[in-house]
Structure formats: structure tokens, C-alpha cells
Design a binder for these strands. Sequence first.
DNA 1: GATGAATGAGTATTCATTCAT
DNA 2: AATGAATGAATACTCATTCAT
Lengths: 212, 212, 212, 212
Amino acid sequence: MTVSSPPPTATRQSAAARSRVATRERLLASGVELFAAKGLHAVTTHEVARAAGVATGTFYLHFRDKRELFRQIALEALRELRWRLDAAATPSEPLRESVPHLARALVSFAEEHRDWVRIIFSVDRDTLDVESDLLSELAASIADGRRHRIAHGETSAALDPVILSQALVGMWARVIAWWVEDPSRASRTTLIETLTKIQLTGTHPAHPIAQP
Amino acid sequence: MTVSSPPPTATRQSAAARSRVATRERLLASGVELFAAKGLHAVTTHEVARAAGVATGTFYLHFRDKRELFRQIALEALRELRWRLDAAATPSEPLRESVPHLARALVSFAEEHRDWVRIIFSVDRDTLDVESDLLSELAASIADGRRHRIAHGETSAALDPVILSQALVGMWARVIAWWVEDPSRASRTTLIETLTKIQLTGTHPAHPIAQP
Amino acid sequence: MTVSSPPPTATRQSAAARSRVATRERLLASGVELFAAKGLHAVTTHEVARAAGVATGTFYLHFRDKRELFRQIALEALRELRWRLDAAATPSEPLRESVPHLARALVSFAEEHRDWVRIIFSVDRDTLDVESDLLSELAASIADGRRHRIAHGETSAALDPVILSQALVGMWARVIAWWVEDPSRASRTTLIETLTKIQLTGTHPAHPIAQP
Amino acid sequence: MTVSSPPPTATRQSAAARSRVATRERLLASGVELFAAKGLHAVTTHEVARAAGVATGTFYLHFRDKRELFRQIALEALRELRWRLDAAATPSEPLRESVPHLARALVSFAEEHRDWVRIIFSVDRDTLDVESDLLSELAASIADGRRHRIAHGETSAALDPVILSQALVGMWARVIAWWVEDPSRASRTTLIETLTKIQLTGTHPAHPIAQP
DNA sequence: GATGAATGAGTATTCATTCAT
DNA sequence: AATGAATGAATACTCATTCAT
């Protein structure tokens, strides 16, 4: 009569496993929401657990501590963003031509993941270690690309590539963080267009630049 | 000679007052150092007091609480920076011509006040209220100037002035914060030159942007 | 036999709940003892926790703060006292006939709950808000009853009912607080008899009172 | 030409002495006001000093500590009240005949010294030591008088004199403290009349009291 | 005497983390 | 795996009191 019941142990385990994953997901989701809203310091583990509908202690079955949860969340967000940016850019072409695609990718990301943007770009000193700082990595890879093109004579060396990359990263990060706080500040289209049209040029521009 | 002893009351008062001011200065100095090194949260009032060589309670004789000390420091730093930027720019001339002077002013400020730069540009959610956020104010005043020139036909309207101003501010802030962490990353001269040469221009992109 | 182990969840929960309740009880008991002995101000939350055999933080798991603990204790004591007084009095009969029963109820209460009496009757400015001041409420209900009987001609209107009620309450409170400090000061019987025989009567004074 | 100047030292001393007395008075006055308004615990020495217009340290030139100031104030108030009550009562006559005069004296005292009444009658555990508890002393002297008259057959022994004295004291104290909080609660005349008419009498109760 | 800056022990309160069930 | 009561170190802040000027 117990033929139809699956082996209890196995069942229990897989049920537990499924439940374990689900619990972890709920904790992550609660963490995203709370960290985005209040920042790392203002959030307590109790709060995260309660928001996830689990007991206090359960938190520690899934994450070593509060920073670990934050890390997991930030890393996932960064992975996703990086993936999208990688997909948008064509390494062989000059940055200039990738820009519209990058801008569109960034804005879409921000639209779909406001909370992630808030978390990534509100990064303060206590939050992430240098190793995992997306902005720094982005800057580094931009600088690399530019250095490469300078070496091949495809780009003028007028601008220090490292400084330029920091400037680019700072610019995009600020704009997107500013927009995400209130998306009505600019339409998606205007945002993409403006980000696209902004070009960092250290040139004696062929076409005289209309003064800002 | 009848060298008169100074009026006792005045002396007494100024002695106390001098001591009070000196203590306050020491607390501010300790605060600058600690906040720059560890951020608002990681610093305790005990620590600040001890670094200043005074007792715990003395801290509260001079500042309502930790945030108040931070506020005082940030406000002073912002005041000084704003003063320098104001002095560097000539309102009547277009931003483009002020840029070299602004860059030089900013770099000098960063050189002389590394700690202040760290404090100002690490502003996180808990740190300063929007009202007193220098970056926001700078962005606003840049946006205003640009809007004014667009209205007078002195500048093309190709770029949204508000977005542009955020971009500018983000760019400069990131670059200077990056540099201050390790001034050997770029020479003062290169830094100023690069910041100067970077121009945000709205070009007529070769490839029209496909809207999503 | 198939003696089923109790449902694990229920067991677990009730074990935790039982422990929680027990801890709360211990904190309340420690609070009663300490507040009675030293008063609200002289007692610290650490002290209460230690007396209850729990850690500092546990206190705050059960009570918002020290005043909250005090409030809970005072309210419970007042509830019990009020219940006893209500049970002792027969609303339909004049106060005079209820007095012996009230006196006996009060004395019994004081005998069984010396600490509560100390807490209730040492109420100082910082202790309870007016709303929850038993004495005031008692006075009010006494005044009401008397006003009612005056309206029905059952009692002379010679005495202001509000003032009289305050007098009654002050009298009983003082006597019981005095006795509780050292019950050997009077036998239980004498106390009840004396309280019973004391009647507040508005006499027709032999000598008219010269008004100032 | 300096004939008219009094000896400087003497002058200075007496000026200082005069000033010393004045400062002390101001501290006492501030203390009365603040203690009446907020109670012993809620008042800080800084507050008293500031209200008196002197520096923090000056407080300690006049009073050992906060409790000492409170004590001085309470003792002065009690001395005055006792003096008035003594003057109102005629020791040789039975209490009953002194009552109207005592009531009038008490009410006058309360009218003229609301703050003192608040301080004296809000006495809590931490406030005054038993030795200086006016109410206890009053009760004791009342009890003495009654015991004396009982011994001389002038008063019935139906009521325990000690308990009775506590009742009297509690009654008057409560009424006067209640009134002082809001003198519009009863006219001065009504108050005196009611206090006067209230007589604690040990009657021969119609219904014998069933002992518990 | 007066000043008032400084002291530092005392106290309330929070919260990340543990562990017995 | 989950629970949730308990822990206790950490920290902010207060205030009675002292003392050099």
C-alpha cells in the first residue's frame, strides 16, 4: 500500500533541497529590496529574515553573515550587468561605435533592476572590497581597449587612457544612478540619446564645438 | 614699569574660550582623519575623542552627536571647495574657457585636502541629506548655465542639459576620487591637462541610433 | 505500541513559547522585587536582567524599556487591586456599608502583595501617567457614587463629593502604605477595624467657621 | 582723598558675602521652580545653575550636590509649613477645635507656595530620608496628642491613635496636593469648609463587623 | 568666589550571531 | 532544515562633579 509513496528519505531530501533553494531565494529577494531601500547599515539580519518569512537563525544557514548576503547580491547584479554590457559591445570595433548599444543596455538594465542599480551604485567604503568593484573593472577594461587602439594608431593619444576611462565610468554611473532615483526625470529615449551623443573627445575638434 | 596685568576677567574668559576652540579644532581634525580613513559608520565617538586626546564626554560638549561632527566637517570642506571653484570660474565666459581653471582648482584642492576629498566624494546614503549634496548643487548650477546659453542660442540643444550636468559632475568626481587614492596614478599636470581636454560634445553620430 | 511522539512542530513551538513565558515571568518577578525595594530610578535594566538570570539583551526581547516593565507591573497590580475592591463592594448599597468589606479586601491585598503596594503607592511624578493613576480613578468613582446618592437625597450634600473622595483615597492609601512598611505596626484586625470605623462625616460644627 | 573709601578689604569681603548670599538665593529659587515642575530626577545641576544665571561650578560652591539643594529647599518649606500649623493650633484644645484653623493655615500655605507644596507632597522614595519626613512627624505629633487626650478620658479610645493620625495626614496631604495642581478645582472657601467639616469619627457602627 | 571646560563612570539600548530544540 | 529565544559585546549619550584659571 505504500508502493506509490516515493522512498521517504529521498523525497524528504529533495523536498528539503527544493525548500532550501526557495528559502535562499526569498532571503536574497528580501535583501535586494531592503538594501536598495535603506543601505547596508540600516538593514538588520532580523529584518531580512522576517521579510523573507523565515526565522532569524535560518538566515545564517544560508549566509555567513550580513556582508555575505550583500556580497552575493552585489555579485549577481554585477554579473548580470557585465553580461549585458559584454553582449552589447563588439570588442573589435572602436568604443565610439559600441556606445549606443552600451547605453541602451545600461538603461534597460536600470529599468528592469532599479534595486540592483541602487545597490551597485551606492557602494560605499564599507560595502565592497576593491576586488569586486565593477566600476574599477569597467574602467580598466575601457582603458585597455583604448590603449590597444592608441597602439594601433586608431585613436589619438591626446587623452590619458586611464584617466579617460575613470571619467567615462564616473559619468555613466552618476547619470544612471541619478535617473533611477526618479525615472520621470528623463525619458528612456532621451537618456539613451544623450548618453550616446556625449563623446569624450580630447581633440582639436574638426568641427568647432558649440559651447555648452 | 607699570606693565599692567591683563584684565583678569578678560584673560580668564579668553583662556577658557581659547581652550574650548582648541579642543573643538582637535576634535574636528581627528574626525577628518578618521572619517577619511574609515567612513562614518566605522568611527565611534570614543575613538574621535581619544584621537583628540579628550574624554568621551567632551565630544558631546562640542557636537550634538557623531553625525553633527561629520556634517560640520563636510560642510566646511564643501564651503572651501565651492569657494575655490567659484574663484576659478569667470561667470561671464563660457564654461569651456573656465574648464582649465576649474580643473586646476580641483586638483589643487585634492592635493591639499586628500582627506576632505575622501569624505566629500564617499558620500553615501546615510551621510548627507540631499539638500547639502554638493554634487547635486554643482550639477544644478551647470544645468542652469547651459539652459541659459541654449535659450540664447549660444549652445546647441542637442544634449539634455540636466543629464549633461550629471555626467560632468560624475566624471570629475570619479576622476578626482580615483586620483586621490593614489596620487602617483597620474601626475598633477597630466591630470589637469586631461580633465581640461575632455569635452562633452554632442556629435552627429555616424550611425543613427536604433530605438528599442 | 504506537505511542506517537508528539507533533514535532507543536512541541518545538510550545517549548520555545514556554521558555519565553517563563523568562518573561522571571523578569517581571525581578522587576517587582527591585522596584519595590529601590524605586524606578534606582533600578537598572542590567540589574533586572541579572536578577532574572538572563543576559542584558534578553530584557529588551520582552519589554521595550524600563518604563514598559514598570508599567506592566503596575498595571497588573492595579488590575488585581481593582478586581478585589470591585468584588468587595456592593454597588447598590451605600458606601458606608461597603466599607468593612473594602477595608478587609485592601488589607488582604497588602498582606499578600507587599511589593505591589509599595510600587503602587510610591507612584511619583515620573512613574505613571495620570491616565493610569489608580488613586485618581478610585477617587473619581467614589465621587460619582456620592454625587448619585446626593441627587437621590440619600446623603447629605454638606461635603463636596470630589474633595471628599480625594480625602478618602489619600487616607486609605497612606494608612496602607504606612502599614506595609512594617506590618507589626498594627494587627490586621485593628487595622481593618480602625479603617472601618473611620467615617468621614460632615458634622454641623459647634462653632461656625470664621472665613478668612 | 581716599578717606571716603571704606577699607577695601572689608568692603570686598562684605560685597562678596552679600553676593554669596544672593547667589545662593538665586540657586534656591531656581531649584524650587525646577523641582516643582519636573521632580528631583529630571532636573540637572547645569539646569539649576543656568536658571540661576551662574556657572556650573558655582552650584557646588553652595551645595554639596543636587540632593543637598533639594534637602535645603524641602527643609525650608517644611519649616515654614510647620511654623504655620503650630501657630494655627492651640495645643491645649482638642484637635477638633483646631481643625478649622489648621485647614485655613494649610490652604493659605498652599496658595502662597504652590511650588513648595508640589515638592513636599510629591516626595518619593529617593527624595527625602525618613528622618525628615514631615508627614511622618505630623502624624506622630497628632498621635501623641490623641493618646494624651485618651489617657485623660477626653477622647474615645475607639480608634487606634496611630492609625488615625496616618489617616488624617494622608487625607490632608492628598487633598491639598490635588488642589494645588489646579486651584480652580475648588474655591478656597469650599476647600477649607470641607476639610473642616470632615471629621474622623469612630462611630458605633449599626452593623457589627464580621471578622474575616 | 566665580568660571566653564573637561572628566569619565554610568546607563540604556541595539543587533549580529549562536544553539538547544 | 528550520526555529526563535537568548546572548553579550559594542556603542551612543548623559550628567554629577572637579579643577585650573
